[in-house]
């Protein structure tokens, strides 16, 4: 992916091979040059973004009608993909492949841009697209980490329920409190939980809307709650290894765009 500063066309980094040279060395140089040209090209960015759009369009129409996708949240993406027939997920495999090419393209173009234009006056204008690109790469990294290591488990609980988290470690539901208004709408709720290890209390928490309980890298949320006939909640235990990288990537992305907008405005003036 190329930014504001790489619109001048393709660049070759490797010098042309001497005409007298022969053999495999020349061929591998040619191949290397071809690969470099491919990844340094803005055309690669545009073609692959276009291809990505087509695959997303296909997925947007295939996914809603396919029941298999309803289980996509319960296991890591790559584990889920391995169990699905290719005819259902070809578009998703395509998206992953295309994103891999775009990621390499982004890194190559950013490095190329910094090397070529390191002496420009507006260094912030040079660096802004690269900050955006770094943010984008971090976001892809986040999805990759989550696709490998995300975890999700649900359990229906009531006051007094004990859930085993790991050997010797337990989650105890102390209390479930639900506020219901005059019309029957749930307006607030609290689920009090205690974590114990070998009968020792490690931590107590109150889970509320948008306020999960965090324990040993896991997020424990309430997915659903009901006041009748008895107070019960559907607890969901999540681990998202990509969350930190997604947030970092998002922040970098925004910083880059804001710098770009401000500088463009200044230059236009």
């Amino acid at each position: 992916m190329t930014g504001e500063d790489t619109g001048e066309g393709d660049r070759l980094y490797l010098p042309p091979s001497p005409s007298s040279a022969r053999g495999e060395g020349i061929n591998s140089m040619k191949i290397l040059r071809y690969i470099l040209n491919f990844f340094l090209s803005l055309n690669t960015t545009l073609w692959f973004l276009g291809l990505l759009l087509i695959l997303f369009f296909a997925g947007a129409f295939i996914m809603p009608g396919n029941r298999a996708f309803q289980q996509l949240h319960s296991i890591p993406l790559f584990d889920w993909i391995r169990k699905q027939p290719v005819k259902d997920i070809w578009w998703l495999l395509g998206i992953i492949g295309v994103l891999a090419v775009i990621a390499v393209n982004t890194i190559f173009c950013s490095v190329d841009s910094i090397i070529r234009k390191r002496k420009v006056t507006h260094w912030l204008l040079l660096i802004a697209p690269q900050i955006i690109h770094t943010g984008f790469i971090f976001m892809l990294l986040a999805h990759l980490l989550s696709a490998f290591g995300a975890y999700q488990k649900t359990a229906e609980v009531r006051a007094g329920t004990v859930l085993k988290i790991s050997e010797g470690t337990f989650l105890i539901v102390d209390d479930i409190d639900i506020n219901v208004d005059y019309y029957g709408y749930i307006t607030a709720w609290t689920v009090d939980v205690t974590y114990t290890k070998d009968n020792q209390v490690l931590q107590t928490n109150s889970i509320m809307p948008n306020k999960p309980s965090v324990f040993q890298g896991f997020n424990i949320n309430v997915k659903n709650i009901r006041p009748d006939p008895d107070k019960a909640a559907l607890l969901q235990m999540n681990r998202e290894p990509g969350a930190f990288w997604a947030l970092t990537g998002g922040i970098l992305f925004i910083i880059g765009i804001v710098i770009l907008i401000v500088l463009k405005r200044k230059i236009d003036k």
Binding site: M63, F69, H143, N219, N238, E240, A243, A246
Partner: peptide, 17 residues
């Protein structure tokens, strides 16, 4: 980004398929 933060706090994941 705000949607992702909200989803993470509400459902424990920043991306829902």
């Amino acid at each position: 980004i705000f949607g992702g933060i909200w989803a993470y706090l509400a459902w424990g994941t920043y991306w829902v398929w």
